[in-house]
Computed example of a mutant assay.
Amino acid sequence: MSLRFAVLTLLDIEPGSGYDLKRRFERSVIHFWSASHQQMYRELHKLHGEGLLDCAEQPQEGRPDKKIYSLTDAGRDTLRTLATAPASTQKIRDPFLLQLFAGHHLPPAQLRAELERHLAEHRALLETYEAQNARFYKRPPEQRQRLWLAHQPLVLGIATEKTWINWAEQLLARLESEEAG
């Protein structure tokens, strides 16, 4: 899978400018696919150059014209091809889990502090996901129906964060119990 796939998918949902695409990416895809703003803009230009995107210029007062990108028929065909290719299974690569694996070398207070820091980050991420989920359900029913599959990574993200938080809270309780005893 590639950034190309993510960009085509986001523009399939709704045409937009590079800035619109960046904002949509940050509210959705970034939680399971990473790319810098520069990479996204390079990909937009590349896709346009390959004839997979149309670009209409929209005049703006006092600013350069805004470029609105949309899929061409060739872009839709490429998206279909990418969507039907088998996706590889992602392996977990988490530095904190590796640190925890060697946790017996860390002072208990340092390990607990690191766990608490990660727990706070996961709680904040869950809060973000739940806010995005609430926005999804405020959409008109026909949009929710059209986008229900695109919504599923968010549903998984919520479940994953809840599981991680539950696991971390249990681990933290055990660490505190070990320290007290």
Rank of each mutant, 00 (worst) to 15 (best):
Gln99Ser: 11
Leu44Trp: 08
Gln39Ser: 15
Pro64Asn: 01
Asp54Ile: 01
Lys66Thr: 02
His105Val: 09
Phe96Gly: 00
Phe96Met: 12
Ile92Arg: 14
Leu44Ala: 07
Gln99Glu: 12
Leu44Gly: 07
Leu44Val: 05
Gly51His: 06
His104Glu: 13
Leu47Asp: 04
Thr72Met: 06
Thr72Pro: 01
Lys67Leu: 12
Arg63Tyr: 14
Arg93Trp: 10
Gln99Val: 13
Glu43Trp: 00
Lys66Ala: 03
Leu47Thr: 02
Lys91Thr: 07
Glu57Lys: 14
Ile68Gln: 04
Thr78Met: 15
Arg93Thr: 12
Glu57Ala: 09
Ser88Thr: 12
Tyr69Gly: 03
Phe101Thr: 11
Leu44Gln: 09
Thr81Phe: 09
Met40Ile: 15
Ile92Met: 13
Pro108Thr: 08
Pro107Gln: 12
Glu57Gly: 01
Ala56Met: 07
Gln39Thr: 14
Asp54Glu: 13
Ile92Tyr: 06
Phe101Gly: 06
Leu47Ile: 06
Leu100Pro: 00
Gly49Thr: 05
Lys91Gln: 13
Ala87Cys: 06
Gln39Leu: 09
Leu47Trp: 04
Glu43Met: 15
Ser70His: 02
Ala102Thr: 10
Ser70Gln: 05
Gln90Glu: 14
Gln60Lys: 12
Leu53Arg: 08
Leu44Ile: 05
Leu97Asp: 11
Glu43Gly: 00
Ala83Pro: 06
Asp94Ile: 00
Glu43Ile: 03
Leu53Tyr: 04
Gln58Arg: 15
His48Cys: 04
His105Cys: 12
Gly49Gln: 03
Thr78Phe: 01
Asp54Gln: 10
Gly75Glu: 05
Glu50Trp: 03
Pro108Tyr: 02
Gln90Tyr: 11
Leu106Gln: 14
Ala102Glu: 12
Arg80Ala: 14
Lys67Gly: 01
Leu82Lys: 12
Ala74Ser: 14
Gly62Tyr: 02
Pro95Gln: 07
